[in-house]
Simulated scan of single mutants.
Amino acid sequence: MPDGACWGPEETADAAVRAAWTALAQVMDPEIPVLSIIELGIVRAVRRDDGGRLEVVLTPTYSGCPATAMIVLEAELALARAGLTDARVTTTIAPPWTTDWISETGRAKLAEIGIVPPPKAGKRALTAPDETVACPRCGSPDTSVVSPFGSTACKALHRCNACLEPFDVFKCH
């Protein structure tokens, strides 16, 4: 991030930047509505640009994410409701979003609703061996992949062979 980037509300004395972080914490991901866009890790910076205008930088979970336009709109509306009418929301795909950016609170919320959060161990190669994924309902490690595509493009569908319940697993990337 360029100089002046702000990675969190506690890192600045700028009241408008802090207010923006507070407003953005109320914007929920449209595909996983228990997570805010901050908890999901797609808010990369809130800062002043070279002209002094407030800028919010978002990185979508992947470049073709169909929810990106809705997230940008919801972020703009939240900022406007907070009185930050001069704020500008931009998106960037570099560096690409990674599941490592999901906050610990976000990971806990995913687990609470039965979505297995990805391990926080850096990006894995697409050809990495499959990992054992425990069932979020009964805890059994005896699970299998039903489909690499789950309820959204960023999740895979698994099934527990012990309790027979299906569940989503957040894909790493």
Rank of each mutant, 00 (worst) to 15 (best):
Y62D: 00
E112N: 15
L54T: 10
V34Q: 13
C138I: 06
G150Y: 06
S140N: 15
I32H: 13
R81K: 12
E55T: 14
P30G: 04
E76T: 05
A121T: 12
C135T: 10
E76C: 06
I115G: 05
D3K: 15
S151K: 04
G64W: 05
A19Q: 13
C6K: 03
V145A: 04
S36I: 14
A5F: 10
G114C: 07
G106E: 11
P60V: 02
V43A: 05
H158A: 08
L79V: 00
S63I: 03
V145I: 13
V27P: 11
L54A: 14
C160P: 10
E165D: 11
L58H: 14
A16T: 11
G64Q: 06
G8Y: 11
A108R: 14
L24A: 04
P119N: 00
K120W: 07
F149Q: 15
V56A: 14
E165A: 12
G83I: 13
V43Q: 14
I42T: 12
T22A: 15
F149C: 01
T12M: 02
A134M: 08
A20G: 04
S63D: 10
P118F: 02
V46P: 01
P96T: 06
A20V: 09
R124G: 02
Q26G: 15
P33S: 12
T12S: 09
G114E: 07
D50C: 09
R47V: 07
E10A: 15
E39K: 06
V145C: 12
C163E: 13
G122D: 12
P9H: 03
S63W: 01
P119K: 05
R124M: 00
Q26H: 15
I93V: 11
